[in-house]
Design a protein around this nucleic acid. Structure first.
Lengths: 220, 220
DNA sequence: GTCTATAGATTGATAGAC
DNA sequence: GTCTATCAATCTATAGAC
């Protein structure tokens, strides 16, 4: 109650808490992405947000709790993007929109993507429950949709899972392997390059399953 | 000189050394893959190869040296696979063979792939020189080949780099995200599933750039 | 809520007996 | 070459003044 509403800068009471928490979470995300869970230190995270190390333990009781919240936040973003895969749309629209959104995420949330990749690569010790419940449910619903497209003859016969893995892999690669890409590219990808890469990914996958890829593969 | 040659079991002198080194490297690869560089401990690696911790430091002076050798070994395997991308073959043959080989590697060298992914994701602090020299050279030569295919009208117009990234991403995903895949798959992928996934990846990419995908997408 | 100082546990690495 | 014991450094986490 009272003025707990969306003030602009300082905010009342627990609003500052939320702001500090976000500050720490952002710093933690960067450090975890750069060094992994084991390689990251509370000291490094503290320096990344210019806060005393003890404050981190005040807001997050342990390193593992902090890490868990970072991963959970990423997963939330991922879920929102997942909604762009509309089950009611046509294959072209649904897939193109989903791929485009995932490429955007790779660009905007590079650190988050890396943290997620790290977590899964190490056997998902912290978020195995998300894989087994939320991700499985989402995947099964989309698998069903794609299978319907196959049965209707809208797209070439593919096991929906291999198609989904290809979309995940290709889009997330631009975040997780950004360093390699930038090394080969002699610097960060430009706006035009991101647009072209997104168009190419869409075109190859859409045409690859028998859909009209729209215009040319490379649209500048 | 003398009998330093390929004996079968115990081996002479420095042959046992090589065998012990390989034992340690194998264990280190598993542990680094599971925990990352920072998360891995010499203690854990020692236990993984049933050797006293001190012996590891006898064969490899430091944790970082050991890690470097693990990464270098992976890169060597990667380079051999890279040769399967024959510059003289037709687009269909070259790409299909390369993709198939990379899928094999993802299955046979899962740990190595993860270590490599980890290293690159964290900014390649140890093997940046490989990226800038060896990988760049290899990539540029293949980019030139693909560009020639485009110019000749053999394949759809694509920036060769987006195509290569897609191949790397999709194939390596089956190693790096194996845990996620196995969770959704309720267990490890069967021989048939590997074969089918490989066929689907080949088919989508080949058809995606305008080539004849051979038979159906899913060949069982 | 914020910060300094420090405890308690773990780590990479080494010394030295065998 | 192999192993036990241990050091010095570092890390997570907390105590306690402000």
């Amino acid at each position: 109650m009272s003025q707990t509403e969306g003030a602009e800068k300082p905010g009342t009471r627990a609003e500052m808490r939320e702001e500090t928490e976000r500050l720490i979470l952002d710093a933690a995300e960067r450090v975890f992405a750069d060094s992994g869970f084991g390689g990251a230190t509370m000291q490094a995270i503290a320096e990344a947000c210019a806060l005393p190390k003890a404050n981190l333990h005040y807001y997050f009781s342990s390193k593992e709790k902090l890490y868990r919240q970072v991963v959970e936040r990423i997963f939330t973003v991922w879920l929102e993007a997942a909604d762009s895969f509309e089950t009611s749309a046509s294959p072209e629209v649904a897939l193109r929109r989903y791929i485009t959104r995932k490429m955007q995420l790779s660009r905007e949330y590079r650190h988050g993507s890396k943290v997620w990749a790290n977590e899964v690569m190490h056997g998902a010790p912290i978020i195995q429950d998300y894989l087994e419940i939320t991700l499985r449910d989402w995947t099964e619903s989309r698998v069903a949709v794609i299978r319907r497209w196959v049965d209707a003859g809208d797209i070439q016969p593919v096991d929906p899972r291999w198609l989904l893995y290809m979309i995940w892999a290709t889009t997330q690669h631009y975040a997780d392997f950004a360093h390699q890409i930038e090394t080969l590219n002699n610097g960060p990808m430009s706006d035009a390059q991101w647009q072209e890469a997104t168009g190419t990914v869409c075109a190859i996958i859409l045409r690859g399953i028998g859909l009209d890829a729209g215009d040319a593969v490379a649209e500048t």
